[in-house]
Design a protein around this nucleic acid. Structure first.
Lengths: 350, 350
DNA sequence: AGTGAAAATGTCAGCGCTGTCAATCAGCCT
DNA sequence: AGGCTGATTGACAGCGCTGACATTTTCACT
């Protein structure tokens, strides 16, 4: 039995469009889905009808009939600026591909991470997922995804999977270059503040630092390498420990801007004049980078662009062909060095 | 013709569950949708079958048959910490209600804001939307929503609509209290830095300041009220202008922490000792509040909780009854004052 | 003009649920 | 026991679209 149509809501159906264009519903469907095998003139006619009727295909019906969902999942562990920038980029790209993005929190540390993910995937029938670090490196997550045969794009994974595309930036080179800037300004004792364990960024940024030091024939004083976790409070402790060393470092490279800001703060509290007595470098070009004085020399990440690219990669997956194009796509996005007032030549008296 | 089922993907259908439980599919449907009129014992049997088969109803099919989408839209204009905290809370609540959240950027300033919104609503067939400021005050947006008959929850709207629920916090009272703290410490010349025009927060926070000043019989020096826009850079300018006044203010109340941090920075650059020569107060308890020295006295917003409540309100809408419960739900969430080192007694010599 | 192959278009069932309404059942009264 | 009422349950079509396959059209070439 035919029920009353919802009043006003929703738009015309595909049949109405077909009538208006003088073709069968199937042909309209072909046009909507951009299938080949429709004469240009016919396509034009259909498109016109769609416009005239302001027709929007019914997602649920398309999904049910075609066994699709048009949904991409974006999973994150930590809310924050990074996430919201990233998702803004990803949504933009999804719109162009006529996909939609479901942004979902997922606790990396929770023992239920697998079950939670699994439920979401099956409930939403996601066509693909994007994993933000550190989720991109969780074996439990990868297992679920593989079992469900869901394509995943990993953002800055520590260990790139052979069969999973990834997007990252060359943090190592950027840190190497910025460390070299410090070396060129005469710094020899440089402290390094590590990020949270288990992140690619943590590893790569340190390696870049080591690269530059070794290339200049300098040894790294283990006392001057402190384990932070990307957070300000921890950065404060690290900085204090470093600045308590003798001889004191003349520069500190922090793995992100929050910790760099902490270094600035700690130094100031110890009465040091910045940047004369201490140079500080950070990473991310976070808002705080321009909120401290002197403003931080840092590295700008194109976060929104990374989001855009991640969404683009997902849409390259061919479900019914062989899956990912070969070789599996990997994108490395360029980083931009941002030189600001927080670095200066090394003091003489050191 | 029956096509081959997708291999492995997806779960059992409602028919399989019905078979296992020895009831008709319709009864399973009743249980899933929590309809009344199912005997407790029958319900139990169905639930068991669902568990055993790990059945997940097909969203697309439910949507198509029931003319629903199970989707709530969250629209934002500005990415950032606020957004990502908010959405985390909203998603949590949505999960409990078996709804899903689509987070979508929408440029408030764009002339296409209406068209963009309209497309999204019709494409996704959203069942409700949450509007973050300043979208919550855009007439164009409200018109679209009303025309499409979509329930909307407004977050911190300037002008609460009679027929639209809203969630907000009593910024006015919080600022009044904190201003009083300054007054009690002997401050008389207090500068106030406004937020971006068009936000409820901007208006309410200023009113709270004015309340406290007037309650103490003090006049507000127009020179000491400067128009910022919630951003650090602008805050820096505002602070410089204020601190250039004679006599200099002994305290500055900024409408958010970024601008308060700017005030700290500006004061420091002018050689003032903080908090001895200048007290500073912010709002939000943003990360930067504990990254500057001295740490900012501020107001903590329960952002995640606001998100949760917004999602809860949306699910109170009764599409086929009279719409919103009466009176239209409005929630005011409590704010927490956070007293930190950035305020001190007013200096004598002023 | 006639032929065959490829291109374009159409037909129709069915995706997995839920709305409508009909059928059945349990409990209660006379 | 029979009849009545309200509570449960079931039968069935159809939501709007797309997959598989059938049919028609087009067009190059004989």
């Amino acid at each position: 039995m035919r029920r009353a149509a919802a009043p006003g809501r929703g738009s015309a159906t595909i049949e109405v469009v077909a009538g208006q264009a003088g073709v069968s519903p199937k042909t309209v469907s072909r046009v909507i889905n951009n299938e080949r095998g429709v004469r240009a003139e016919t396509r034009e006619r259909v498109l016109t009808a769609i416009q005239q009727l302001d027709y929007q295909p019914n997602l649920a019906a398309r999904g049910l009939a075609g066994d699709r969902s048009f949904l991409i999942g974006l999973f994150y562990d930590q809310p924050g600026d990074y996430l919201s920038e990233f998702q803004t980029g990803a949504v933009q790209r999804c719109r162009e591909a006529n996909l939609h993005l479901m942004v979902e929190p997922l606790e990396a540390a929770s023992p239920d991470v697998g079950r939670d993910l699994s439920t979401l995937i099956r409930q939403l029938r996601l066509e693909g997922v994007i994993l933000l670090p550190p989720l991109s490196d969780l074996p439990a997550v990868q297992a679920i995804l593989a079992a469900a045969d869901i394509p995943a794009v990993h953002i800055a994974p520590m260990h790139a999977q052979d069969d999973a595309p990834s997007v990252d930036t060359d943090d190592r080179a950027a840190v190497r270059q910025l460390t070299t800037e410090l070396l060129q300004r005469g710094h020899r004792r440089i402290g390094f503040m590590l990020g949270r364990a288990g992140h690619r960024a943590t590893e790569q940024r340190y390696l870049g630092f080591a690269d530059a030091m070794h290339a200049s024939g300098l040894d790294i004083d283990p006392q001057l390498v402190q384990a932070g976790n990307f957070e300000f409070a921890e950065g404060l402790e690290c900085a204090r420990r470093m600045l308590g060393c003798h001889p004191r470092p003349t520069a500190i490279f922090a793995s992100n801007d929050d910790m760099a800001a902490a270094a600035v703060s700690a130094a100031r509290q110890m009465g040091l004049a910045l940047p004369r007595q201490l140079s500080v470098v950070g990473f991310d070009d976070a808002p705080v980078a321009t909120m401290v004085w002197p403003q931080l020399t840092t590295v700008r990440q194109p976060v929104r662009e990374i989001g855009r690219v991640a969404a683009e990669l997902i849409s390259q997956y061919q479900p019914h062909r062989q899956g990912w194009p070969r070789p599996v796509p990997r994108r490395h996005l360029p980083l931009e060095l941002v030189l600001r007032g927080s670095i200066a030549p090394a003091p003489r008296d050191c």
